[in-house]
Nucleic acid binder design. Structure first.
Lengths: 154, 154
DNA sequence: CGCCTGGCTTTAGTACGCGCTAGTCAGCGA
DNA sequence: TCGCTGACTAGCGCGTACTAAAGCCAGGCG
C-alpha cells in the first residue's frame, strides 16, 4: 500500500528527485541525532547551555556546535537574559520553526513506543481532557487520512 | 513554550535520559538520510531494487546496505515474486512498522514546506474530499493539541 | 587578588555514512 | 555458449558526527 501521486510526481520516470525535495531538505537540516536530542530537551523545557548538554547526554563540544547550527537555521534563538545579581547569560528558546518540528519528534517517539522493543515508552496526553494523543495525518474536514487515501502533488 | 512533564520525567534532575528514550531509539534506527529517502520512495510506490536506487539518487551500494538494514529492523520485508516468463526476483514492501513511519516522513516534508526556503513544496490532500492534509498532534476526543497542552508521562 | 562557575573552544582521535569503481552471480534470450 | 540484465557485494577513500580531555574567558564573590 502506498500514496497516490499527482502532478509532476505522477509523471516521473526513474530520475532522482534531487535536493529540493522537502523531505531531503529537512533531513539535511535536522537529521542528526544531536539535533533531535536537543530539540527533545527544548520541548521538555531546557533553555540553558548546561541543561542541554547534561540532559541530552551529548558532550559540551557537540552541544555547542549543534546549538549554534540550530540558531543559524532559525530553529532556536539565542537571547540574553539577566537574573538579578548575576551576570548576563544566554538562553536558547524555540522559534515558530522549532515548534513546528514537534510532530516530527513525537512521531518518532510514537513509532518506537509501538514498534521498537528496546524503547521505554512515553505516554502523550491532552491537558484539556486527559485523552491520549497521537500524531497523525488529518484533512481539514477532520478525517483521519490513511496512506492509501493520501494524494501527494508535486 | 514547552510541554508539561509528568511521572519520572517531571522529577528528573539533570541526568541524561539514556538510550531507552523512544526518540533516541527511533533516531538510531532510521535516522539516516538513506533510510528516510528509501522510505519516501516506498511511500511513492517503489518496490524493486533498481527503482529504489535510481529514484532515491543513492548509489546501489548504499541502497543495498540500507535496504538490508531496514528489512532486518522489520520496516520493510523482502518477498520473492515471479513475473511470467521471468526469473524469480525480490520486491521490498512496507510492513506495518514501515507504514507507521509515515507521519514522521511527511511531518518532515510539511516542516520544509513552511520553514525552509530551499524546498520545492509538495501538497498533501485527501482522496476522499480533496481537502488539504496536515500532520499534527490530536487527542482521541478530536482536539488538536498544541505544545503547551501536551502532557508527556514517562 | 585569586577562585569558581557558566559557557563555551580547541585538539586529537574514532566511527560511520556515503560515493565511486569494480567484481560477482543467476538465469533468460540469441 | 555467450552475453546481457537485475541485483547485488567488496574495497577504498573522503567528510562529517561524535567523544574525551583540556584549555579559555568573563564576571561575581571571598
Amino acid at each position: 500500500m502506498h500514496v497516490q501521486l499527482a502532478g509532476r510526481l505522477a509523471r516521473r520516470g526513474n530520475e532522482p528527485l534531487g535536493e529540493h525535495c522537502p523531505i531531503d531538505v529537512a533531513v539535511q537540516a535536522v537529521g542528526t541525532r544531536s539535533a533531535i536530542l536537543l530539540l527533545r530537551e527544548a520541548y521538555y523545557g531546557a533553555t540553558r547551555f548546561d541543561d542541554f548538554a547534561a540532559r541530552s547526554g551529548l558532550t559540551e563540544a557537540t552541544t555547542a556546535g549543534r546549538l549554534k547550527a540550530l540558531v543559524e537555521q532559525g530553529v532556536l534563538e539565542k537571547l540574553p537574559y539577566q537574573e538579578p545579581g548575576q551576570r548576563k547569560r544566554y538562553e536558547y528558546k524555540l522559534t515558530a520553526s522549532g515548534e513546528a518540528l514537534m510532530p516530527v519528534v513525537f512521531a518518532l517517539a510514537q513509532w518506537s513506543n509501538e514498534h521498537q522493543a528496546a524503547a521505554a515508552p512515553i505516554k502523550l496526553s491532552h491537558s484539556g481532557c486527559d485523552a491520549p494523543v497521537t500524531i497523525k495525518a488529518e484533512c481539514s474536514e477532520g478525517h483521519a487520512v490513511e496512506m492509501d487515501q493520501l494524494i501527494v502533488t508535486s
